[in-house]
Write a protein that binds this DNA or RNA. Structure first.
Lengths: 221, 221
DNA sequence: ACAATAGTGTCTTTAAGACATTATTCA
DNA sequence: TGAATAATGTCTTAAAGACACTATTGT
């Protein structure tokens, strides 16, 4: 064992969702500890006795604190330093999760969903973590099927395009977007139709759960 | 402070360099502790008393253990679990550094440079960390000026192309590569020439230290 | 019939790939 | 002068962007 005191080890989760075409982040009001009463990313200590991995720790905390089961999650970045947590030198392994809105609980005083372009003050260095999460999401958005993680099991191409537009923060060319999605085999037809619009739209599902792309799905203007 | 025992916190470094057109990784022979005598990535404990950040810890260890000062370094990924270190549940924050070969020390029994395609058995889960580092390098290689970090302050375009070819593991189209590098303003002319080849080649420097690109520098065949 | 949204066709423009050609040095 | 390597020019092909058009439903 080390001669030195060990940093405190925590995990935090940036849970992103799409609500009416807007990117939202789930924030939890801190019930105890430093920054009690403030808004923060959901997170907590790693429990070596029960967690087999950091991702396990995140899932345990999200299940317990927020009643959230995430489909797609990836590790974001590890934040560290003597000053970010008043309890001492700490390490937080931040994770990012993309969840369809209807797989998340309703909003309460304890768990709120905030537009990423209009965030309140956050505890710790969580504003920095959120900024890193958004950079990652926007960077990966054009080169992967990541934005589709915001959608349900099946979705229409217009929905898919709106998800990409929300992630990338710009309008995409309709014809070119559809061409790429179809030509590259990103989705497969379910045979079903969504009848919530005037003209029913074909419902697709992702051909593979997650895929990184050789070329960008960005299709300017 | 937590009710739970805290994981052990370490950092590891994947130091990559380019030697005669081949990607090499620096490995250190373990002088003590678990896996004594085995080859491993250079790494060690975080020292909260003296390190201001994880990157600081890496630089301290590299300076002390290996006499290495890295120019470009980024955080790779955090590895964790109960079994990866015989001393107990541990967290290792892996970093990746790209260094020109001539900025690294000579090879000894204690510090060796191994071709990434022909690695020996490594201590801990370091083989997994190396695999992640290579995935990151190859993924980012085409979409950034990262491979230029293997080169010195100034370099020729043929050198730059060879660095990209080593990173991407494939030959690139000469004319298209040069077109992109020049058109996108990735480099600026130093006015100097490299006279080590028959026809002297113009020497360039990076226009900015590191840059991510909108489009890929891959220029097939 | 008309509004609304889904989906396609096609023309123009731009970028990529292939590869021949020219340029500048050394031996 | 010829071998070697650097650098450019240009033709062909493929992809992206623009945008008009057709299609299928609800009211």
């Amino acid at each position: 064992m080390p001669d030195y005191t060990n940093p405190i080890a925590t995990v935090d989760a940036v849970i992103l969702t799409l609500e009416q075409g807007r990117l939202k982040i789930m924030l939890a009001r801190r019930a105890a500890g430093p920054f009690q009463g403030a808004l923060a990313l959901p997170g907590g200590y790693v429990h070596p006795e029960e967690d087999r991995s950091l991702a396990d720790a995140v899932r345990r905390i999200l299940r317990g604190k927020c009643g959230v089961d995430v489909a797609y999650m990836e590790q974001l970045e590890t934040f560290s330093g003597p000053d970010r947590d008043p309890r001492g030198w700490s390490i937080s392994v931040a994770h990012i999760a993309l969840v369809p809105r209807d797989a998340l609980p309703v909003e309460t005083e304890e768990r709120q969903f905030h537009d990423v372009d209009d965030l309140p003050d956050l505890a710790f260095d969580h504003a920095e973590i959120v900024a890193a999460a958004l950079r990652r999401l926007r960077g990966k958005g054009a080169y992967s099927t990541l934005p589709a993680a915001f959608l349900g099991e099946s979705f229409t191409l217009p929905e898919m395009q709106r998800a990409y537009e929300a992630v990338l923060g710009e309008r995409l060319n309709l014809a070119a977007f559809r061409r790429k999605v179809m030509d590259w085999g990103l989705v497969e037809d379910t045979g079903e139709k969504d009848r919530s619009t005037d003209r029913p739209a074909a419902l697709y599902r992702l051909a593979e759960p997650f895929r990184t792309l050789e070329r960008s799905l960005r299709t300017a203007a």
